[in-house]
Amino acid sequence: MNIIGVAACVAGIAHTYIAKKKLILAAEKAGHTIHIETQGTIGIEDKLTDNDIKSADIVILAIDIQIKGKDRFIGKKMVEVPTEVAVHSPTALIKKLQEIVESVEVKK
């Protein structure tokens, strides 16, 4: 499964990057590919490319604030959570994402 996402917290110093790290670890452990963009106080880092977005199966937004460029994901399957959820339960979150993707595929 191809996961992309954005992480952004209030201060943009700590939670943003912890959420990113946890999501990547959990996703790779489950055998998915993942790319997370961060929108911290320094600005956007690891920006998602158009190709990343086009080839993604699902978008995960781990955000506490309004992010830039949310309209890029219109038409994509998208799950939004506060950063603390990504920090506290990344593996369960990734599993949930997989369930969502699979349930849609079954319907098709």
Binding site: F73, P82, S89
Partner: peptide, 22 residues
Amino acid sequence: TEETIEEELEQQLDLSSLKISG
């Protein structure tokens, strides 16, 4: 909300916090 890097046990996923679209 706090970060707990050392904590290995995960908390139960809070489904009410998920917003799914698309």
